[in-house]
Design a protein around this nucleic acid. Sequence first.
DNA 1: GCAAAAGTGTTTAAACTACACCCATGT
DNA 2: ACATGGGTGTAGTTTAAACACTTTTGC
Lengths: 199, 199
Amino acid sequence: MRQRDPRHEGKWALPGGWIRYDEHLRSAASRLLNELTGISDLYLEQLKTFGRVDRFPGERVITVAYYALVSADSYQLVTQEEDVNWHTIGEVSELVYDHNEILAEALTHLRREVRYRPIGLKLLPQKFTLLDLQNLYEAVLGVRLDKGNFRRKVLRSGLLLPCDEKQTGVAHRAATFYRLNQSAYDELVDHGFPVQSLV
Amino acid sequence: MRQRDPRHEGKWALPGGWIRYDEHLRSAASRLLNELTGISDLYLEQLKTFGRVDRFPGERVITVAYYALVSADSYQLVTQEEDVNWHTIGEVSELVYDHNEILAEALTHLRREVRYRPIGLKLLPQKFTLLDLQNLYEAVLGVRLDKGNFRRKVLRSGLLLPCDEKQTGVAHRAATFYRLNQSAYDELVDHGFPVQSLV
DNA sequence: GCAAAAGTGTTTAAACTACACCCATGT
DNA sequence: ACATGGGTGTAGTTTAAACACTTTTGC
């Protein structure tokens, strides 16, 4: 997401702003996001802190960047500001200051995380098909995955539960919707993920 | 590592200090570490930023925490300050402010990272035996690993090169020393790690 | 019937697990 | 001799990878 701001050299910028003296970092990020987009009640995860001396002109500014995982279609952007909108990751042009660097860092982080934590499941709406999930993984990782193998691997993990519902009005066999098995997910988070690749 | 500071309620603290206005974050961390321990030329990795409003009494303090991987025996601590020393992770007592939280975060981070990046290799001296490496992994992860399987897995990765040298003066068959295959390691970092566990 | 995606099966190779076993060296 | 760790072998099982195949649905 990005915004236009006349102060920002006419370029786009990531949503952001100043933290208040008495605010927690995550609260500040959440407030700023909400002010700009209307989105609230989102779990924000700290990405990284950017502190190059010359990253901002005139004064020393340190940015603590946060990110969240949402499915774009489940959030309407309610905002007074113009030019606030969703954008495709590949089509983001030059941003102000070091915001491209921040975005790149976020993407790298996401690509790494997605490999060993089921965060992909947080990115989709409540109900989704296995192809939705596969498309998501292929998009984030930039690879092609085998349908059958992906399906088996996902289902074997026990993190998905089938809904009673199926697709309707599609020009092919209707896919069953799945949803996150929250208790299995929490269990996994608590007890840690299996030791897979040493060295 | 921790230090005693009379201002710190008599408890121990992680090494740290204040950043100067014109300093990069990593440089500041490096300088502070050097001032306290004499260690220099260490690659510091940003851990996380801690910003709870009430984490420090009296004023708002935000800490950007960094960490590094070193083998304790390869660095002599040269310092004027007293009570600066290495400590075993399990035996760290109550620290000042939220420093226990910071330490716990670092350990969690390390345990996660070590599973899918060969950072364990950075923790050991130039030359090391396979048992050294196995002990390191067992310590960090808190699990027991099979000797033969670990050895095969490590060697198959191609990240280790055998030295011509062997152990001497040990009351058992001498182990061959290994060293990091730097080019293979760099290759792996550049081209990314294999996609292992989806979902 | 055809296109398109759902969903299943199969085959082969690779990897993991859990052991048992022999080898070298200092005391 | 024996304790200690170095180092190798192997059987059984599990996963992964690649690909072919059958099923359902709208047009």
